[in-house]
């Protein structure tokens, strides 16, 4: 028994014209498919952004008095640190403490700090 006999090539040869047409059409189909998907995702995004906006508008009046008494976020000072992304809002929290809190959270989650996104850090004062 010949275990490794030659295997015939699958399919047929195609002409130059068919070859070019298939390549162009294939690329066009991939583009068209992903562009249509992009449009769907944009529509989805618009819908969810509007929904989010409506919700936050509904919550805002109730939350307004409480917000007035809350401390103002500190402005981020100077240039961001190397490797950082975005900004963080800090409420009565010094730089060093904020950095320490973020490092502890990253360590406990077992994820690198640069893969986490911190939106704000606020000190909760005991009454």
């Amino acid at each position: 028994m010949n275990l490794f006999m030659e295997v015939a090539a699958s399919g047929k040869m195609i002409s130059f014209g068919e070859n070019g047409l298939t390549a162009v059409l294939g690329y066009a189909v991939v583009f068209a498919g992903l562009l249509a998907l992009m449009a769907i995702l944009y529509l989805m995004g618009v819908f969810f952004k509007l929904r989010q906006k409506k919700r936050s508008e509904a919550v805002l009046p109730a939350a307004l008095p409480a917000k007035q008494s809350a401390p103002e976020p500190e402005e981020p000072a100077g240039e961001p640190a190397p490797g950082s992304a975005g900004e963080i809002r800090r409420f009565d929290v010094p730089d060093k403490e904020a950095a320490m809190i973020m490092a502890i959270v990253a360590d406990q989650m077992g994820k690198p700090l640069n893969e986490l996104r911190f939106k704000s850090i606020k000190e909760v004062k005991k009454s």
Binding site: A9, S10, G11, K12, M13, I14, F16, E18, N19, G20, T22, A23, V24, G26, Y27, V30, F31, G33, L34, L35
Partner: peptide
């Protein structure tokens, strides 16, 4: 989508150098 360019150019090239449509 743009990064699939190589798929179709390699397909085109493979046909030109003698592979069948399926193989290309």
């Amino acid at each position: 989508a743009a990064a699939q360019l190589g798929v179709f150019l390699a397909f085109f090239g493979a046909n030109l150098i003698g592979f069948t449509g399926n193989q290309a």
